[in-house]
């Protein structure tokens, strides 16, 4: 976990912002473009120096803030992330892929050649790594925004906070606190749904519980999550099998500790049966 600290963003000129894409669906970058009301302010507050999805113009590095979307999945990306780190003073990973490896990290538990062979007609043209890994597995990351996709209010908060030198108001506590502040009924207690809220980091605004659904943990593990306790409640009280537990934990952030460790645990339990 990366502890939020105050960044040293220069106050003089407009800070330069760069947005990078690695292996991802572009959804998180879209959240940035979806800021709508604040987009004009954003363009006023920072110089968009490198953001291929938004504009063709590129300004040369260095950049003050770099936002990175996506995981490292190819040899080319493995090399490129080193350049990105060198080019950015303050590097922020945005979204589940960049912070945990994302859905594509499911291949980390499988045979990559088999996957490639199934998916592509001519697998010999595909150049890929064995694993999809989070950015922080390769370079130092200054801050991370979780979620699949990231919450645009959090993107705006992060950037506003960086600009004035505030500690970004990005909570690392459980989703439950956010859910309860909204006054939403607890779907776990009142409806026995397998809600991952008590071990998942807040930040989405409790989107799923707001529509009566269980949280599926797309914001990844909260600070010091008690996986074992919730896990045993789910298996013993709600009757979920180890396999189901593994699947729940491995959806978006399965490769991020301690979801990884817990999902591996349930995998072993499942295999033992």
């Amino acid at each position: 976990m990366i502890t939020p600290t105050a960044p040293a963003v220069p106050t003089a000129a407009k800070p330069k912002l760069a947005v990078y894409k690695f292996s991802s669906c572009d959804g998180c970058q879209l959240q940035l473009l979806n800021l709508e009301d604040q987009l004009l302010d954003l363009v006023g507050a920072v110089e968009i120096a490198y953001f291929l999805e938004a504009r063709r113009r590129e300004l040369p590095p260095p950049y003050d803030i770099g936002l990175v979307e996506g995981s490292v999945s190819t040899p080319e990306e493995e090399e490129r992330i080193q350049h990105v780190r060198r080019d950015c003073k303050y590097l922020v990973t945005i979204g589940a892929c960049a912070t945990s490896g994302g859905i594509q990290a499911l291949r980390n538990w499988a045979n990559i050649d088999e996957f490639v062979g199934h998916v592509y007609a001519q697998p010999e043209h595909v150049s890929t790594l064995e694993t999809a890994t989070p950015i922080a597995a390769h370079v130092f990351v200054d801050f991370e925004l979780r979620g699949c996709p990231v919450n645009q209010l959090q993107v705006a908060e992060l950037l506003s906070a960086l600009l004035v030198g505030r500690k970004p108001n990005i909570p690392t506590h459980s989703l439950c606190i956010e859910c309860k502040r909204r006054g939403l009924p607890c779907v776990l207690v009142s409806d026995n749904q397998p809600c991952l809220g008590p071990i998942t980091q807040a930040g989405c605004g409790a989107l799923c519980p707001a529509v009566g659904r269980a949280c599926y943990g797309c914001f990844g593990p909260m600070e010091q999550p008690n996986m074992a306790s919730l896990g045993s409640w789910f298996t013993s009280r709600l009757g979920y099998s180890p396999r189901k537990m593994k699947q729940m934990l491995r959806l978006f952030n399965g490769y991020l500790e301690p979801f990884k460790q817990a999902s591996d645990h349930y995998e072993r339990l499942d295999a033992r049966k």
């Binding site: 506590h173 459980s174 439950c176 309860k180 607890c186 071990i199 008690n226 919730l230």
Partner: peptide, 10 residues
């Protein structure tokens, strides 16, 4: 056992 989720305080 405690999840430290904060539900009790909320």
């Amino acid at each position: 056992r405690c999840l430290s989720c904060g539900n009790c305080t909320m």
